Simulated assay, not measured.
Amino acid sequence: MSRPQDPPRSFFPFGNPFRMIAPKGTKLPPQLLAVLSDFEATLEERLKNLIPKSEDEVVSLSWMTSAMQALCESHNDIKSLMTNLELPVTDWDEKWIDVYLDISVKLLDICIAFSSELSRLNQGRLLLQCTLHHFGSFSSDQLFQAYSSLDGWRQHIGSKNPRIENCGSVLDNLAGSSDLPKVKKSAKGKVLMQAIYGVKALTVFVCGVFATAFSGSTKNLMDMDVADVYSWAPTFKGLQNLVNEEIRVRFSSGRFTVLNELEAVDLSVRELYPIIQGVVDTIETESLAKTVEKLGRATENFSQGLDLLTKEVDGFFQVVLSGRDALLSNLRSGATVNDHILRGNKDAQVVN
């Protein structure tokens, strides 16, 4: 992971795609308004639950796990909303279909990138466990083996993941397509598009934080301007400002990473590394034992956090994939859908 030198990403070169004016046109009937209100109230509650209670929660693997859970639940809510609206896919405007499929393919790309980074971190965890295993005794041979494993960890964790490095362009495309199609005649369509907009704002924010934490650079951190006409907007802005500001403060102080559990491991490694680096005969056994114990606790917390987050990222991938597959299946069976939509989206490929 590299230390960032990037300025705050507070603007977009071609205007802010998240600036969305209050919906106009078709007035929502009371029943649909209630459906939308319930959806947005649930979204706001999830945003509130993601507000860290202290700076120590930014950015922890447990917070990232909760954020990914919120994404899974919100995207599942979109699928439930489609059912509740009783809006058959065959009645969808072509632009709505394009928006949904475009979002889904970009999210699959991002999930693949995140999964690859979690796999890389898990490989590094094995090196830490090897290091701890070699500290079963403090013989010269075992200390040499521990030193070798620890050196391997430092080289591995300091390397870059090309998929994460390329994640920024995918996020740019996802954010750049955030202007949703205007809905003039369909009240149900307006509810659907407004709900998708809210979930998309949450998605881009969370994915931006993930990409920032994994890359060690603020270049992927997103500052989105959401219109105050949405009931969840104030909560969203509060969450975004708090998390983004803390991340920037940490990076500006020269920290190796903003991931709390990884930072704890790195601090323990820094303490341990010089102790065993070529000065075996002068090692104080008691001091070494305490430092090894500290590294063991940090490694265990890191391991548990990785396991939980990996499970949630895999789950989110399946949520997005299942929703996309369901829509494509319905499109193939719909007689009123134009053939070019089917051909265009059938050939869409997830970037590996």
Rank of each mutant, 00 (worst) to 15 (best):
L174N: 01
F14R: 15
R332K: 15
Y147F: 13
V229R: 13
V209H: 14
H340V: 02
D91K: 12
V99L: 12
S148K: 10
G198P: 08
S287L: 12
T90W: 08
L267F: 15
S177R: 12
F11K: 03
L342D: 00
Q129T: 08
L321S: 07
A227I: 03
L174K: 02
V279W: 14
A34G: 00
E55K: 15
L309D: 07
H134A: 06
S215H: 13
D281V: 10
S2P: 06
K27Q: 13
E312N: 08
D102K: 11
R270N: 13
D339C: 01
D179T: 14
S253N: 14
V99F: 14
K106V: 00
S54I: 05
L28T: 04
D56T: 10
L321F: 05
A227Q: 10
I196K: 01
S140N: 11
S66D: 13
V226P: 04
L121D: 04
H133G: 10
L132K: 11
K200L: 06
T131F: 00
L107Q: 08
T83I: 05
D6L: 01
K185W: 08
G278T: 14
D223S: 12
K48A: 03
F317G: 00
L107F: 02
L43C: 05
D347W: 13
D347S: 14
P29Y: 07
I283F: 11
Q69E: 15
T26Q: 03
H156G: 02
L331N: 06
D109A: 01
V229T: 10
D151P: 04
L321C: 00
P23I: 04
Y100G: 00
V226L: 13
V351Q: 05
D314F: 03
F205K: 15
I164A: 04
L128N: 09
M224H: 09
V229D: 06
A348C: 04
V320W: 02
E293A: 11
E57D: 15
Q194E: 15
N241D: 14
V279D: 15
F317R: 02
V229E: 09
M224N: 13
Y147H: 09
Q31I: 05
V292Y: 06
G158M: 03
V319H: 09
A70P: 04
S116W: 04
L321M: 05
L267P: 07
K53V: 06
I247D: 15
Y147W: 10
L61P: 13
S159H: 02
L126G: 10
L321N: 10
H340D: 07
P52T: 11
I164F: 08
V58S: 09
L32P: 07
A187F: 09
E45W: 07
P181A: 10
T299M: 09
S80P: 00
K185C: 00
S322A: 01
A146F: 01
T291M: 07
A201R: 11
R19S: 03
V337N: 01
V279K: 15
N49A: 12
L87K: 03
K53L: 08
D141K: 09
V170R: 11
R3G: 00
K184G: 00
D6G: 01
